[in-house]
Design a protein around this nucleic acid. Sequence first.
DNA 1: GATAATGTTCATCATTTCTTCATTTTTGCA
DNA 2: TGCAAAAATGAAGAAATGATGAACATTATC
Lengths: 226, 226
Amino acid sequence: MNILIIDDERELLEKLNSVLMSEHYTVETAGDGREGLEKVWNDTYDLILLDIMLPGMNGLEVLSEIRAAGILTPVLMLTAKGDIKDKIAGLNLGADDYLAKPFSLGELLARIRALLRRGNTGSPVLEVGGVRLNTVSREVTKDGEPLTLTTKEFALLEFLLHNRGRAVSRFTLAEHVWGDNFDPFRMSNFIDVHMKNLRKKLNFPEQESAIKSIRGFGYLIEKEER
Amino acid sequence: MNILIIDDERELLEKLNSVLMSEHYTVETAGDGREGLEKVWNDTYDLILLDIMLPGMNGLEVLSEIRAAGILTPVLMLTAKGDIKDKIAGLNLGADDYLAKPFSLGELLARIRALLRRGNTGSPVLEVGGVRLNTVSREVTKDGEPLTLTTKEFALLEFLLHNRGRAVSRFTLAEHVWGDNFDPFRMSNFIDVHMKNLRKKLNFPEQESAIKSIRGFGYLIEKEER
DNA sequence: GATAATGTTCATCATTTCTTCATTTTTGCA
DNA sequence: TGCAAAAATGAAGAAATGATGAACATTATC
C-alpha cells in the first residue's frame, strides 16, 4: 500500500515516514501543496495524508484540486486542534476523515487501516479459496494452516485481494508494492518470480491458481469463486 | 476517444495535440470559435477542450451555442488564472470542468480521464449482442460463457465498442491499438487477420457479425442492436 | 561478522500470439 | 456480366510472453 504524506513539518514528516515504513506501507512525501499535487498527478496512491496548514497553497485547496480532477484516493486531513471550520470545509470538499494534531500514532494507524479497508467488507480479513489474509495481524492461513509469506509476497497478495475482480497490470503492481523504488525503465521479471513463489506457497490445484495471469497485461484474482 | 481542442495559441495547441496523441486520443483542433463550431456540427466528439479567450467569438459564446443546439459532449474550459467570473459563467452555461492556465499536463490528463469516464454509462462493461467486455477485469463473455481473447483482439473489440456507431478506419485502429509501434508505410493486412480471428471467437451467426466491414475504410459496431 | 532469509537478475524453454504471405471470395461498379 | 479492388481466409514462420530453476546480491538476524 502506497501512501503520500503532504506536510511541511520536516520532523513530523520523517517520524510518520519511519513509522509507516515499519508498518510495511510504501511511503512518499511532499513538503508543500505544489509538490504534493505534482506527485498526485504522476503516481497512484492508496491513501493521502494531507496537512491543512501548508505554505503557499493550503491543504483545502490541494484537496479541492485533487477531487476536481476526479481522483478518488482516500484523503485523511491533519488539522490543528479544534479547528472545526476547517474540518467541515474539508469534509465538504471530499476528505474521508480528519485527525487533530497532536495525535497519537496508534490512532493514526487505526484510521489509516480503516480507510484502506474501505470499500471492502470492512473486515481486516481478505479471503480467496480457503486462503485468509489478515491485514492487521499480517497472518496468512490456508484451510486453517499457517503460511509463511515474505514481505513482497504478502504485499502482492494483499494488493490483488484489495482489487479483486480488477485486472492489475505489472506496472500498477510495481507502483503499489515497490512505490518510489522502482524504475519503470529497468523492469525485469521480478514480479513474475514473486508470483511464482507466491503461487507455490498458496498451492492451488493445477490450472486453478487463485491468481490468474492475464497475458500481455498482468494478474487478477477473480471476484467470484468459481 | 475523439477530442476537439479550440484554442488560438498555436504553440499550446500543438503541444496539447502531441501529448494527447501520444496518449492515444484522436485529436482535432480549431483556431477560433467559428471554426470550432463548424467542427462540432459536423463531427461527434467525446470531449471538447475550449479556451475562453478566443479572437472574435469568445469561448463562453461558443459553449452557449453548443449547449443551445442540445449537444451534451463534455466541455473542459481553459481559463486565465484566477478568472473566477469566467469560471462561474462557464459552469452556468454547462461546462463540465475548468482548468486555469498555466496547468500541468498531468493535471490536464487526469481531468480528461475523469470526464471521459463519466460520459459513458458509468459501467465498465461494454456489450454487444450477448458479448460482454469488462474493461476492469478484462474478462469477456458470450452469453455468460467466458471467451479467451488475445491482447490485440481485446484492444480492438474494446476500441470498437467505445466508438459504437462510429465507423473506425484501419488507420485509426492501428494508431490506437498499436500506438507508437506501428509504421503507416509498412501496412499489411494484419488488422484484417485479427478481425477475422476476433469474429471467429465471437461466433455470431452467418452474415450477422457484430463487427461490420466498411469497404474502403475500416470497421464498425452499430449503435443499436437490430 | 557470520549465517540465513529474502529479493533480484539471468538464461532457458514451452507456449501463445503476431505478422506475413499466397490464395480465394466478395463487393462495387463500368 | 465481367473486371478490378478490397476483404477474408488458411497456413506458417517469427516474435513475444510468462513460468521456471538457479545464480547472485542484498538485507535482516543473531
